[in-house]
């Protein structure tokens, strides 16, 4: 059975890579199969790992009188069911309620935490090294890095500041910001290439060693 699985995986891998030559029915077969299997897998898993343990089991326990606390699950279940009113032209206005609850609860949870994680902490991280410079605990390289980081942050933010026309000194500051952005994009692109090549290496390793092992 394991050997059969390896042959199926090898066949589908070769189907996908056949696209490098040109589009063909083998590639499309593997692509559609992947989409179908992925959707089916996620649906079954979400039902078994989400709906059944979190909604159905507690609700059923409440109905059978095993644990009445499960009745409280009726509230989120009913709110969730309101999403399906979208399919009825007469009742589709009811869908506003679950959407409003989702947006309200989501914003309430996210705003304070996101502000702290991505604004306050990042601002602290940018200016904190200067306290260490003042205390004399940083090396020359670290001091250079701290200053470079502040220059990068200020110049990049200036590039995205559109309330003032980018002329004179502002123009040059925003140009430095563009240079920092380009370096950032270059780094991201280089890392992406590394990641994509790793995927190819893994598949070639599979074809040569696992699949090849079943042949030779």
């Amino acid at each position: 059975m394991e050997v059969f699985g390896i042959w199926v995986a090898a066949f589908l891998t070769l189907c996908i890579y056949s696209f490098l030559y040109r589009d063909n029915p083998f590639y499309r077969f593997a692509e559609y199969l992947f989409v179908g299997v992925s959707v089916g897998y996620v649906f079954v898993l979400t039902t078994h790992q989400g709906f059944i343990p979190l909604a159905w089991k507690p609700f059923w326990a409440a109905i059978t009188g095993e644990s009445l606390i499960g009745l409280i699950k009726l509230i989120p279940i009913c709110i969730g069911l309101l999403f399906f009113t979208r399919f009825s032209t007469q009742h589709q206005w009811l869908v506003r309620y679950p959407i409003a609850i989702l947006i309200g609860a989501g914003s309430g949870l996210a705003i304070p935490n996101v502000l702290r994680a991505n604004i306050f902490e990042q601002t602290r991280g940018t200016i904190e090294p200067f306290a260490a410079i003042h205390a004399g605990t940083l090396s020359a390289g670290e001091i250079f890095g701290a200053i470079l980081m502040v220059i990068g942050v200020v110049c990049t933010l200036t590039y995205f500041f559109f309330s003032i026309e980018h002329r004179g000194p502002i123009k040059w500051v925003s140009k430095v910001g563009i240079a920092f952005l380009m370096i950032g994009f270059g780094s991201a692109f280089g890392n992406t290439v590394m990641g994509r090549v790793a995927l190819l290496i893994q598949r070639v390793d599979f074809l040569l060693n696992d699949w090849g092992g079943t042949i030779f």
């Binding site: 602290r124 950032g184 991201a188 890392n191 290439v193 990641g195 790793a198």
Partner: peptide, 25 residues
């Protein structure tokens, strides 16, 4: 993965991440 390494470095610098393994490297 390599695709998202660049997004992680700001968190590493602030100490919100105590360590980072970057892709296959």
């Amino acid at each position: 993965t390599g695709v998202i390494i660049s997004q992680m470095y700001p968190y590493l610098q602030t100490g919100q991440l105590i360590g980072l393994i970057s892709g296959i490297a």
